[in-house]
């Protein structure tokens, strides 16, 4: 069975699928801590410039993806403002690497992730957190023992949403890290590439089917996990 499955997709297609999964997984997991932090800041803190931060977080959602990709190139490219510095001092290079694709996917998915988590945090009654603090819990422990478990369904929803968005990311990725097979050619880029050559439709169709399966699986999984967690934290 496994062999037949492997043969159903050509080696280039497999490469794109594996790369897409790796890029999206890293994009989601690596941005999750920051996503939770930013969501918490937006939900609970009051400070001047809060709307600016909110705007910056949401910018990738409204900008054309190509623009986001180009901005990434300017900032994180090898000659970019920050990219230059990262290359010289730490040897970290994003442009034309799969890590760059992960950064592009993470940034494009970030607003969706933050939004889902922020809604979950806003639904937590601050009075419960106050109660925890009167029982001796410091701010850190209040967050870990009360806030975090209560927003877990929101975090899972946000992560799955971000993962799905990352899988489908195309514009910013292709602008920032191009379309190099094995390096930066994710499923959408591969579909695009196959459609550019005669006789590529079949391969493209197979990748489309894979994309649909991944999306459905992610949705189902999130539904199952969210239901489990909701039962756990829901109080019955």
């Amino acid at each position: 069975m496994g062999g037949e499955w492997a043969n159903w997709l050509g080696p280039a297609e497999w490469q794109a699928v594996r790369l897409s999964l790796r890029v999206s997984l890293w994009a989601t997991l690596a941005s999750l801590p920051l996503g939770i932090f930013v969501a918490y800041v937006l939900a609970r803190w009051e400070f001047p410039g809060k709307q600016v931060l909110n705007g910056i977080v949401h910018l990738p959602l409204i900008l054309p993806p190509v623009v986001t990709g180009y901005l990434l190139l300017i900032v994180l490219g090898r000659r970019g403002m920050i990219g230059q510095f990262l290359d010289q001092w730490f040897g970290i290079v994003f442009s034309f690497r799969w890590t760059g694709a992960a950064v592009a996917a993470a940034i494009m998915a970030f607003p969706l992730m933050v939004r889902a988590i922020r809604l979950a945090i806003e639904a937590v009654d601050p009075k419960l957190e106050a109660a925890a603090s009167t029982l001796g819990a410091s701010r850190f422990w209040v967050f870990v023992t009360v806030t975090l478990p209560l927003i877990l369904p929101g975090i899972i929803a946000g992560a799955i949403l971000a993962f799905a968005k990352a899988i489908g990311e195309f514009g910013a990725t292709i602008t920032f890290v191009s379309n190099i097979p094995g390096q930066t050619q994710t499923i959408p880029s591969a579909i695009y590439a196959f459609l550019q050559v005669p006789g590529g439709q079949e391969a493209a169709t197979r990748l489309v089917i894979v994309a649909v399966i991944i999306a459905m699986a992610a949705l189902l999984l999130s539904e199952i996990i969210a239901r489990r967690v909701a039962r756990l934290v829901g109080g019955t």
Binding site: D125, K127, L128, A130, A131, A132, S133, T134, L135, G136, A137, S138, R139, W141, V142, V146, P149, L150, L232, V233, G234, G235
Partner: peptide, 20 residues
Amino acid sequence: LPPSKRRLGYIFQEGRLFPH
């Protein structure tokens, strides 16, 4: 002293039990 250092037992009107 922050609330966490005051060694309190605060019983709230609405209970405020941790649902999870």
